[in-house]
């Protein structure tokens, strides 16, 4: 497989949120106005100005606290990105797929897209929308950094070695090797959709314990007729487009 991939070894994540802040810093994104909503997870959700978020779940064993699940959520940069398939129907300049790195990029032309359609097309619930400008945004794999030989900001900042980044083939090898090691003491350990995406998480338990959309989820994409039509005409667009 060509391009670049992330490996996120969740057995090492301490939820320090270095990645989350490094992302904000590199992108110069403003802070969120937040309130205490009863969790250390802050802000509560991804947004138009938050591309990376460490999700935190307190797993309970009956009434007793069992353990934390930390999940640094971000765009998975699908190898066949459904958001692009849908986006192309409205404007094929809106969502681009970088051939060199495999990054899925939202451009300014996302203002021509139907936000609901794009968000529903994502099996990981990633794209977010700005009502004022009608633009959409998400992680862009720090494409400017990666193309110039630097690590993505989040990977560079990771102090525990949870996040790794490199050529997809090598990363997949590292992920599989690490999975074997972890399985010795965590038999439920799994890689999340390793052959479909470029951000592969290693979870020590069922990925759904970490986050509802840790693995591709069928319960968001309820495709509208408009989106279904997009797929139907897509092959024709390839021929004539």
């Amino acid at each position: 497989m060509q391009g670049k991939s992330f490996f996120v070894d969740l057995t090492k994540c301490t939820a320090c949120r270095g990645c989350q802040v490094a992302c904000k810093q590199w992108k110069k994104l403003p802070a969120e106005e937040t309130r205490n909503w009863g969790s250390f997870q802050n802000p509560k959700d991804l947004s138009f100005i938050t591309y990376k978020l460490v999700r935190m779940t307190e797993a309970m064993d009956g009434d007793k606290f069992k353990q934390w699940y930390f999940f640094p959520d971000q765009c998975r940069h699908c190898i066949y990105p459904p958001c692009k398939m849908v986006g192309d129907m409205f404007d094929d300049q809106a969502i681009l797929h970088d051939e060199e790195t495999g990054a899925v990029l939202f451009t300014e032309a996302t203002k021509n897209l139907d936000f609901e359609e794009i968000r529903m097309s994502c099996p990981y619930d990633i794209p977010r929308w700005d009502e004022a400008s009608n633009l959409q945004s998400k992680c862009d794999m720090c494409n400017d950094r990666v193309q110039n030989g630097l690590l993505p900001a989040c990977v560079l900042s990771c102090p525990t070695g949870t996040m790794q980044f490199g050529d997809s083939d090598e990363i997949l090898e590292i992920a599989k090797k690490r999975l074997e090691e972890v399985k010795k003491y965590k038999p439920n350990a799994a890689l999340t959709d390793p052959n479909d995406v470029r951000v592969i998480f290693l979870t020590s338990d069922n990925p759904r314990e970490y986050f509802r959309y840790a693995v591709a989820s069928a319960d968001i994409p309820k495709l509208s007729r408009k989106a279904a039509l997009a797929k139907a005409i897509a092959p024709a667009r390839q021929v004539f487009g």
């Binding site: 066949y80 459904p82 398939m85 849908v86 097309s121 099996p123 591709a216 989820s217 069928a218 994409p221 495709l223 989106a227 279904a228 997009a230 797929k231 139907a232 897509a234 092959p235």
Partner: peptide, 9 residues
């Protein structure tokens, strides 16, 4: 299978 998009593609 999860994505109607991909399956129709």
């Amino acid at each position: 299978k999860f994505s109607a998009v991909a399956s129709s593609a």
